[in-house]
Simulated scan of single mutants.
Amino acid sequence: MPPFAQVLPRFLLVAPVALAACVEGMPADPSAPRISQRGTCFAYVAAEDGGQYALVTGKGDGTREPPALKTNPMGAAAVDAAFARELKAMQVMPECLAVYAKSRAEAAPYVAPEPAAKS
């Protein structure tokens, strides 16, 4: 049996795992707006404890975690209304080169950014 015939079955088992690792963390659509892009205005709803929600808004400045404003926790109806107002405003703001928006239906728990290391 040639040497490659012994290696081929192992390669076929490992290749999909290696390829999956290459695309881990990539957006489904690479051309979609990202918070880290300079000029991208963003608004997303974050789930809070006790069935509450918070609205997180900001504008991408080219860093991985741009500065953002987070509202106090509020109910579903209040956060939906705040999200709709913010989305409408971002769509007409000339400084918003792109808009990234995630509604309450896509809410994930809020994770505070780590403070930057002082040098």
Score class of each variant (00 low, 15 high):
M1C: 06
M1T: 10
P2C: 10
P2A: 06
P3K: 10
A5Y: 00
A5I: 00
A5F: 00
Q6M: 01
Q6H: 03
V7F: 07
P9Y: 02
P9F: 01
R10P: 00
F11G: 00
F11K: 00
L13H: 01
V14K: 04
V14L: 15
A15F: 12
A15C: 05
P16T: 08
P16Q: 08
A18Y: 09
A18R: 07
A21D: 03
A21H: 12
C22E: 04
V23A: 12
V23Q: 14
G25R: 10
G25I: 07
M26T: 13
P27Q: 11
P30L: 15
P30E: 15
S31D: 10
A32P: 07
P33M: 12
G39W: 15
T40R: 12
C41N: 11
C41K: 10
F42R: 15
A43I: 07
A46V: 09
A46F: 13
A46Y: 11
A47Q: 15
E48M: 11
Q52V: 12
Y53F: 15
Y53G: 05
A54S: 12
A54N: 06
L55Y: 04
V56D: 04
V56S: 08
T57S: 09
G58W: 08
K59A: 10
G60W: 05
T63W: 14
T63Y: 11
T63D: 11
R64P: 02
R64Y: 08
P67W: 04
P67I: 04
A68M: 14
K70T: 13
K70G: 05
K70Q: 11
N72D: 13
G75N: 09
G75M: 06
A76G: 11
A76E: 10
A77Y: 11
V79R: 09
A82E: 14
F83E: 05
A84E: 10
A84Q: 07
R85L: 10
R85H: 09
L87M: 07
K88A: 15
K88G: 08
M90K: 07
M90L: 06
M90V: 03
Q91R: 14
E95N: 05
E95G: 05
C96K: 03
V99H: 01
V99G: 00
V99P: 01
Y100Q: 05
K102G: 00
S103C: 02
S103Y: 03
R104P: 02
A105L: 01
A105H: 00
A107M: 01
A107Y: 02
A108Y: 03
Y110C: 01
V111R: 08
A112K: 13
A112L: 04
A112W: 05
A112M: 04
A112G: 03
P113Q: 07
P115G: 08
A116M: 12
A116V: 13
A117H: 14
